[in-house]
Structures are given as structure tokens and as C-alpha cells.
Amino acid sequence: MLSATDISVSFGKRPVLNSVCFTANAGELHAIVGPNGSGKTTLLRAMTGDLTATGQTLINGTDIADLSPAELAQRRAVLPQSGNIAFPFTVLELVRLGLHAGMPSRAGFDPNLPQKALTRVGLAGFEGRFVQDLSGGERQRVQLARVLVQIWEPVLNGAPRWLFLDEPVSALDIGHQLIVMQLARDYAEAGGGVVAVMHDLNLTAMFADRITLLNAGHVRATGRPDEVLTDGDLSACYGCALRTNTPPPFGGKWILPQAIANRTHVGA
């Protein structure tokens, strides 16, 4: 289990998160949604140990403050929003960096893991390409492959491992969005835990087991998608009229991917 209690973060004098509590279960995909500036990424970064926050974050019962960077790296991996890469790595070289993350030695790894991960994110055959020559969406998937390689087994020695994704599909086309979200679901269904900051509410509704809706540094609602994605809460948080499960007025077109996840409780 991942549990964060009383997380408060201020940037200068401006409070960004105010006593936020957050709990995610292994075996579930837990999405964090909310408008721009609501504190989604800050909450994620507080829980990954990126920034110093008041409060406490426990990963499988251990305070992250008590874990060394290496120990932490064996328990969780983080996909950042984006980031530039300083030197011209090939795709294989970059993904391989995740192979030994947090491990004391370089020995004893499946050398084919980078290629398996690249296949999972739909980039088989890209091994020899230079990362800086790829499109934004391809780069994002290369990074996802690196992150997957770091914690390939969703459960290690009986303990779940945690995948933190910060807007994992923001640079992707709709087809690849579905592939990546399905991959995150598969990781959760295999026993790992997934926490994802999401912007796309439809994808969130389709793939998340649980959702936490943040607004102005507070938790507005948390629970199953049908509990959180309500017209009232969404409209209040996002500052515009939002209606769930209703076709747009005036007969305009709308496009909703047909879920590849076999979900039964959505909208239940």
C-alpha cells in the first residue's frame, strides 16, 4: 500500500498542497486529476521523494525518508512529464539505463529486458535510433520503457512495486494513449501499484480503478470513478459546465475510444 498523510508543500509563501492525504492500493490504477495548478504533479513529486514536503509517505509501510535512493529505486519508478536528454543516446542505451537502477551490481539481469520493454510500448525495432531524432510521443514511450525496465516485476519478494506516471499520455496520439493506459492497467492487474497524474478525464474514467480529484491544493473527492466523476464536482473544480455520459448538444461529433480494457464497474 502507498499512503501519504498530511502532505503540505509551499513554494515560497504560496501553499501548493494543504494537508493532503492520499492512499493507493497495490493492484489498482489510481489516477490523480484536477485543473492546472491544483497540485497534482506536486503531490506526485512529494510521494516520490523529489521534493521535501511536510507529512509522511509510506511505501509498503516504510517511510520513504528512511529509504536510501537505491532502496527507493527498487520499490518505485517514476515517469516524469518530459525532460531533455543531455547527450545523444540510442534508444537501446537509454532504456538500458533503467536496468541497473538501484541495484548494487551490474550482474544478473535479463539482457533482453530493454527489448521486451520496447516491444511493450510499441517501439520494437527502434533500438538503434537516436533518441533526439524521435517524435515527442516516441520519446515519451522510450522513457516509459526505461521506467518499466527498472521495476519490471510488479511484485518482488512478495511486495508490490510502484509505478508513478506524470501525465503519461499527454504527448501521445489516441491509439498510443490506449496502449500506454492498458500497459499501466496490466501492471496493476499483475499486482503492482500505479499512480498516474492525468489530464484526460475520459481515459481516466475508462482505465482508473480509483480517482483522486484535487482542487487548489485540497482533495475534493476520492474514490471509484463513478463516485468522483460527478457533474457537480467536475464543473466546480474545472470552472466550466461539465456533464458526464451525455452527448454534446446540437448534435456535434464526439469521439470516444472503445475501451480495450474489460471494465465492468465503470459507471456502475
Binding site: 527498487q74 516524469p80 538501484g102
Partner: peptide, 11 residues
């Protein structure tokens, strides 16, 4: 090379 935050994530 991937950034300071990523390096920390990687242990």
C-alpha cells in the same frame, strides 16, 4: 544525463 530528478528516481 536524463536530469537530476530522474537520476534520483534511478537510485
Amino acid at each position: 544525463a536524463l536530469g537530476e530528478a530522474v537520476a534520483a528516481h534511478m537510485g
